[in-house]
């Protein structure tokens, strides 16, 4: 762990793939943090301290990227020179947009008190099922090197994760957190 530009998968000794062993990832992350963390250089000279902050930050960023399925997907595409920030019109089908609008409307129309909690749970299950399906789809297209299709699925995953976060926020408000 000497370079700040290494491929995140190589960094953690993991195969460059959609499926990822979370246990190995976090074990290797903890092991490497044990070596580079600024706490290991509390008595060192300034340049060494600075380098420790940089290496440790890099390791944190790499870990966060691979840990999250969505960020991992974007990272995998970026390794294939696909820029997910660039959204093309035909990346998003009309059906997908309509479905998202319907789901969102459902969320907006719910009553603002605890009576909505059961519906929120149902909505969450629905979104989770879609997420699971689309994560599999992403892996399928990615493995087939059909990156255009993979990118489309990525955008759908983005919608679904955002919706999922909004369901959580909606639940928190109704629970009075």
């Amino acid at each position: 762990m000497q370079s700040l530009t290494r491929n995140y998968f190589t960094l953690f000794n993991l195969p460059e793939a959609c499926e990822l062993d979370q246990e190995s990832l976090s074990a290797e992350y903890r092991r490497q943090q044990g070596e580079v963390h600024p706490d290991r250089f509390a008595n060192a000279e300034e340049p060494e301290k600075l380098r420790a902050v940089q290496l440790s930050s890099y390791l944190n960023e790499a870990y966060e990227t691979l840990k999250s399925p969505l960020r991992r997907a974007a990272y995998l595409l970026s390794l294939r020179d696909i820029d997910v920030e660039q959204v093309n019109q035909n990346d998003l089908s009309m059906d997908l947009l309509l479905e998202q609008i319907q789901l969102r409307e459902k969320l907006d129309e719910l009553p603002k008190d605890e009576s909505a909690l059961a519906t929120l749970d149902a909505l969450r299950s629905e979104v989770n099922a879609k997420l699971e399906k689309q994560e599999k789809n992403f892996a399928k297209f990615f493995d087939l090197e059909n990156f255009n299709e993979a990118k489309k699925v990525y955008h759908e995953l983005q919608f679904l994760y955002k919706l999922s976060a909004e369901i959580d926020a909606g639940e928190e408000i109704r629970l009075g957190y």
């Binding site: 600024p38 440790s56 890099y58 944190n60 960023e61 870990y63 966060e64």
Partner: peptide, 8 residues
């Protein structure tokens, strides 16, 4: 809740 140190 992002682990520190962190650079973004």
């Amino acid at each position: 809740n992002t682990t520190i140190p962190v650079a973004k």
